[in-house]
Amino acid sequence: MTGVSGSDDPTQLRVNELVAALRSEVDKVEQLGEALSSRDMIGQAKGMLMERFTIDADAAFGILHEASNRSNVKLHDVAHQLVRDRTIDGYSNPS
Rank of each mutant, 00 (worst) to 15 (best):
M1A: 11
M1N: 04
G3P: 01
G3Y: 07
S5V: 13
G6M: 03
D8M: 06
D8P: 03
D8L: 11
D9N: 14
T11F: 13
T11E: 07
Q12C: 09
Q12K: 06
L13H: 05
L13C: 08
V15H: 03
N16Y: 00
E17W: 07
E17T: 08
E17L: 09
L18M: 10
V19G: 04
A20D: 12
A20L: 08
A20N: 13
A21L: 15
R23E: 13
R23Q: 12
R23T: 06
S24I: 07
S24G: 10
E25S: 14
D27L: 08
D27E: 12
K28G: 02
K28M: 05
K28Y: 06
V29C: 13
V29F: 05
V29E: 03
E30V: 01
Q31M: 11
L32A: 10
A35I: 09
L36K: 11
L36E: 15
S37Q: 13
R39N: 12
M41L: 00
M41R: 11
M41Q: 09
I42F: 02
I42T: 02
G43Q: 06
Q44F: 08
A45F: 00
A45G: 01
G47K: 14
L49R: 06
M50W: 08
R52Y: 06
R52P: 01
F53K: 01
T54V: 12
T54Q: 15
I55Y: 01
D56R: 12
D58A: 10
A60D: 09
F61M: 09
G62L: 05
I63G: 04
I63L: 13
L64N: 06
A67E: 07
A67Q: 07
S68E: 14
S68G: 07
N69Y: 10
R70V: 02
L75E: 11
H76W: 03
D77A: 15
V83L: 07
R84A: 05
D85R: 13
R86D: 12
T87C: 00
I88N: 06
D89C: 04
D89M: 05
N93H: 14
N93L: 01
N93G: 04
P94I: 06
P94V: 00
P94H: 07
